[in-house]
Design a protein around this nucleic acid. Sequence first.
DNA 1: GCGACAG
DNA 2: ATCTTGTCGC
Length: 235
Amino acid sequence: MTSNRYNRFMHFNRLHDWNLTTAQARDLQNRLALDVCRLGNVAEPRFIAGIDVSSPLRARGMGTAAVVILEYPGLELVETQTVRGNIDFPYVPGLLTFREAPLILQAFEKITHTPDLIIVDGQGIAHPRRLGIAAHLGLFFDIPTIGCAKSRLCGTYIEPASEAGNFTELLDNGESIGVVLRTKNNVKPLFISVGNKISIDDAIFWIMRCCRGYRLPEPIRFAHQAAGNFKSENN
DNA sequence: GCGACAG
DNA sequence: ATCTTGTCGC
């Protein structure tokens, strides 16, 4: 009842397993990065998903993944799914996906509103091997996905002007891997990059349209709140 | 060898 | 990521 064509729950490509060594994980990223599509347009989304994970330890322990669905243009929360479970991959810069994705996929399996756009708390292709968590998840879901990170993982940039809407390019060895976008006046900018199946221009446009007076876009704010509601019992 | 390093 | 009240500034 979880694989018939009338299933009302979300399904996605199970591209591989997650029990890998760090060396195998990096090798996998290099191969999967070739499948990321940096082009695509989202005309008028009906549902937008936000994804975030709260993990208590730098190494192992219990964590909570949250996937929320907001309707557009109202940006009202219409569905929230969370999964609490053990996280057995340590935090290693560049391999965040292997720590958070397993729980995120479990939460996504319970989602009943198929999103037209997905925003992930983390990098898209603005990653050493061009496969941050947003790009990686974008390949699994095969839905337009945007990476929305609060800080830089790699690349160089010039600080964007202080007014909301301004942005500068994030460059890595001459390659444009994303933008540094000011989503709120006089507040630290966000690092936006393509996750999959969307152009950087559309990514910037939709991130701005999801902001409602706060630095973080609404989908990420709701997801963060949903995952954080469990932090008191996260130990 | 040294510094950097999403969450 | 997480521990956490008041406080400075637009």
